[in-house]
Design a protein around this nucleic acid. Structure first.
Length: 362
DNA sequence: CAGACGTGGCC
DNA sequence: TGGCCAAGTCT
């Protein structure tokens, strides 16, 4: 591979074919940081809408630093990996308190911010500050596993180290950010899972292409198996209001809101499970009155089938005791919009709205 | 270091 | 449909 030609061919292609993403017009540190955190484990096409809404709500880092976690999570609702949002809030507070409100410009300092790892620090350093740092993400690993025709697992320490070294040797000092973005753009648009080698600007530099091994690269570890689980949730209606609770820290979906519920245990019917969960979680005796719908969703390695029931109190009214939540209460259906729910529960809310469940509560 | 952490889209 | 995958980080 001729380094100079490779970089030149790649940048020419990027200049002509790079997507017009909103933060590329003015890559200032805050905008780049926001976009890079949102892009972690997320496809760019999904990021754009969230990015625009975020920048409208939190236009600069001091506005973000002053925000409530509740509002930050609401802006993140549906994107997943919510620790990213909570870490951004922490990082914003750090920048205000420790760095006088100025986003740090040094690789090590950038990486020390919560939620910013090696990749993201490299991306911000190069894109916002023009520093010649590598930014090696899954795209970059895939591209170079093919360019170098790597037989070793590219995610392993040695494989990743090899790619980093090559990237460092290729970065043009005057266009470090563009180079890093160009490799990722190539990985996203051309050198993807189903590669489009006929349109590749660096085809002539690609060892796997020449060896006809493109489809065997990258060499990846065996994937995790998905685990199927059955769960229940209950929408408890009392006096025209609905019970919701806020999930605890150090659990899945920390800080997000939900309807009480849980796993169906062996030998249990879904209805029994709802009643048991209500007793355990909020110490209320309830009656599952009507099956609303079944929502299926996946999170990490789980595929969840969630049976959803409309419930009534089976006892005189009394205050719920939140054993499995930091707080909770009965709210009017129209304000459910204001709370951040995990995707499965959000879909249940949307279903109930569309089926006009909320029009007849009493 | 392996496992946890979300979600929607694709084939 | 079910498994794979996407601009990773943290513990």
């Amino acid at each position: 591979m001729d380094e100079i030609t490779f970089t030149h061919d790649l940048l020419d292609w990027y200049d002509a074919n790079g997507r017009d993403l909103p933060w590329r017009q003015n890559p200032e540190p805050y905008a780049v940081w926001v976009s890079e955190i949102m892009a972690q484990q997320t496809q760019m096409d999904r990021v754009v809408g969230y990015y625009s809404r975020w920048m409208e709500r939190f236009p600069d880092i001091s506005t973000l630093a002053r925000a409530r976690e509740e509002d930050v999570l609401k802006m993140w609702e549906g994107l997943g990996y919510y620790s990213r949002a909570r870490n951004m809030l922490k990082a914003a507070e750090t920048v205000i308190q420790e760095y006088g409100g100025v986003f740090p410009a040094e690789f090590k300092t950038i990486q020390s911010l919560p939620g910013v790892g090696e990749y993201t620090a490299g991306a911000i350093s190069s894109i916002a500050y023009g520093l010649p740092e590598p930014a090696v993400d899954a795209n970059v690993l895939r591209v170079f596993s093919r360019v170098l025709d790597m037989e070793e697992p590219v995610r392993g320490k040695s494989g990743k180290g090899r790619v980093e070294k090559v990237v460092c040797s290729l970065i043009p000092p005057d266009r470090a950010g563009d180079f890093n973005q160009a490799i990722m753009e190539l990985g996203a648009l051309i050198c993807s899972k189903r590669p489009k080698c006929d349109r590749c600007p660096v085809q002539g530099h690609c060892k796997a292409y020449m060896a006809n091994t493109v489809h065997q690269r990258p060499v990846l570890p065996a994937p995790q198996k998905t685990i199927r689980i059955n769960m229940v949730t209950g929408v408890l209606v009392h006096d025209g209001k609905i019970l919701i609770q806020k999930r605890k820290p150090d659990d899945v979906w920390p800080g997000l809101w939900e309807f009480p519920g849980g796993s169906i245990e062996a030998g249990e019917t879904p209805q029994q499970a709802v009643a048991r969960e209500y007793m355990e979680e909020v110490e209320l005796s309830i009656m599952p009155e009507k099956k609303i719908t079944t929502v299926t969703y996946t999170y990490t390695k789980y595929r969840v089938t969630m049976h959803c029931y409309l419930c009534r109190l089976d006892q005189a009214y009394r205050e719920p005791v939140f054993n499995e939540a930091v707080e909770g209460g009965f709210v009017l259906p129209e304000v459910l919009e204001e709370y951040a729910f995990p995707a499965g529960h959000r879909r249940l809310v949307e279903y109930m709205k569309s089926a006009e469940y909320f029009d007849t509560l009493s």
